[in-house]
């Protein structure tokens, strides 16, 4: 479970995230919706301990990410862009991460199988297509069989079968009791995958609700409700 409390982040004079609070619960897909540049990625980087909050805190099972004893077994994340060296094979990349996280070596072949990368595990990851790269990110996230998944724009740039694969994966993971937190700027995608929605605009929380409730607010259209929320808040 993720608890975000009064989270703020400045970059110089820019306030990227402004006093945001919410919870991400187990067994649920929580969509994180907002226009480009609204603070979604920054919030996720703060949760993962990559950036330090200016104020407030992001806790995972009660502790900040940097203090987790078994981080890979608590949270799996795929953040923006690729996070592997192009010259290393998928298997070696995963083996290195597994070693650092204290995960048994056999788990590497398991996640390669789960993500359908078994046949290309020995290939240099730099030769991967966008979809294969995304699968490698997911494989790394699943290494520790974590209770929480954090995915930043996971379907961006994927072809239809890739999108479907991610959608099914998200559903399966939540149904298995995991807390899944997935950001997107695609409203239709969120309507298909999410149970709950957190809407963020200009770094501020605009809504924390269910998909059904939000779409009712827009007279049955999630899109109308979204624009009502994100355009209503100015600076």
């Amino acid at each position: 479970m993720i608890s975000v409390r009064g989270l703020s982040k400045h970059y110089g004079d820019t306030l990227a995230v402004d006093d945001v609070s919410f919870d991400i619960r187990p067994g649920t897909v929580t969509g994180f919706l907002g226009p480009n540049g609204s603070g979604k990625s920054t919030t996720m980087r703060l949760i993962m301990g990559l950036d330090t909050p200016s104020r407030g805190e992001a806790l995972i099972d009660g502790v900040p990410y940097r203090e987790l004893r078994w981080p890979l077994r608590s949270v799996g994340a795929v953040l923006e862009a690729w996070a592997f060296h192009p010259g290393r094979s998928a298997r070696s990349h995963l083996a290195a991460l597994a070693a650092g996280g204290g995960i048994p070596r056999r788990r590497v072949d398991e996640v390669l199988g789960l993500t359908g990368l078994g046949g290309v595990a020995g290939r240099r990851a730099g030769t991967f297509s966008l979809g294969m790269g995304q699968r490698l990110g997911i494989a790394a996230a699943l290494l520790g069989d974590p209770g929480v998944l954090v995915l930043d724009e996971p379907v961006n740039g994927l072809d239809p079968s890739g999108v479907r694969w991610i959608r099914d994966l998200i559903r399966t993971q939540a149904d298995a009791g995991r807390a899944v937190f997935v950001s997107s700027h695609l409203i239709s995608e969120m309507a298909l995958t999410a149970d709950r929605l957190i809407v963020i605009s200009h770094g501020r929380l605009a809504a924390d609700t269910t998909v059904r409730e939000l779409s009712a607010r827009g007279g049955g259209s999630l899109e109308e409700a979204f624009f009502g929320l994100t355009e209503g808040i100015g600076r």
Partner: peptide, 10 residues
């Protein structure tokens, strides 16, 4: 390469 994000996640 961006690997640092994976490294610091682990």
């Amino acid at each position: 390469s961006g690997l640092i994000r994976s490294t610091l996640a682990a």
